[in-house]
């Protein structure tokens, strides 16, 4: 639906611009200036906003992440039927939006997290095209606890956990990482 709206939007924008270009010499009347306003000011800018939203949405999809071959085994690890693999369990049980599984668990909450994710993405693209990816991939820095807490903080099962209750302050401040107790690494097939 959005795709076709943007395709039609692009066609309309180009058609209006072509008409305008052909009539540029006679932009003296009010109606011709209205055409210029519509063709150059309104339609392309609205279409641009739509495209930015569309591409942002597309880049958050797991299918975009696994386009690079370095990521394909990580994408496949989400499909493993294993109760011990937390990424696979989150994916299998629908605990995260499956279409945006990578983004959901690798982006800190808030505007800072979005910007950070974009910058890390740029770095990854640079390495993919112009560098050499290491055999064993590691995440950038430490895995932030705030990512897990986005969903788990309010969950009754998390709050009822005896260990969680005992060290709740350390968990909430990020002093203790979820990874200290939970093995969340992707299980890659050899």
């Amino acid at each position: 639906m959005v795709f076709w709206a943007l395709v039609i939007g692009a066609a309309v924008a180009v058609a209006l611009l072509v008409i305008l270009r052909l009539r540029i010499r006679s932009l003296a009347t009010r109606s011709e200036r209205a055409l210029a306003f519509l063709a150059m000011g309104v339609v392309p800018c609205l279409w641009l906003l739509g495209m930015l939203g569309y591409t942002d949405h597309a880049m958050k999809k797991a299918s975009f992440c696994v386009r690079c071959h370095e990521m394909q085994s990580y994408g496949e690890s989400l499909l493993v039927d294993d109760d011990e693999s937390l990424p696979a369990v989150h994916y299998r049980d629908g605990l995260v939006d499956r279409k945006k599984a990578c983004y959901a668990c690798h982006t800190r909450p808030g505007l800072g997290g979005i910007i950070e994710a974009k910058l890390k993405g740029l770095h990854d693209v640079k390495v993919h095209y112009f560098g050499e990816a290491p055999d064993t991939l590691t995440i950038h820095g430490e895995y932030p606890t705030s990512i897990c807490l986005k969903c788990h903080r309010e969950a009754a099962s998390f709050q009822a956990g005896t260990m969680h209750q005992a060290m709740m302050d350390e968990i909430l401040t990020g002093e203790t990482s979820c990874l200290d107790c939970h093995d969340v690494a992707h299980e890659l097939e050899d």
């Binding site: 692009a10 270009r21 150059m40 392309p44 597309a58 693209v125």
Partner: peptide, 29 residues
């Protein structure tokens, strides 16, 4: 006036066509 508008229109046509390519491919580069 006409020259500036003409350049602007050309830039916008190129911009729309360039961005419209992203509707059909999501190649990262």
């Amino acid at each position: 006036y006409a020259r500036v508008i003409r350049c602007g229109v050309t830039a916008q046509i190129a911009g729309v066509l360039l961005m419209a390519a992203l509707l059909f491919t999501k190649m990262p580069l």
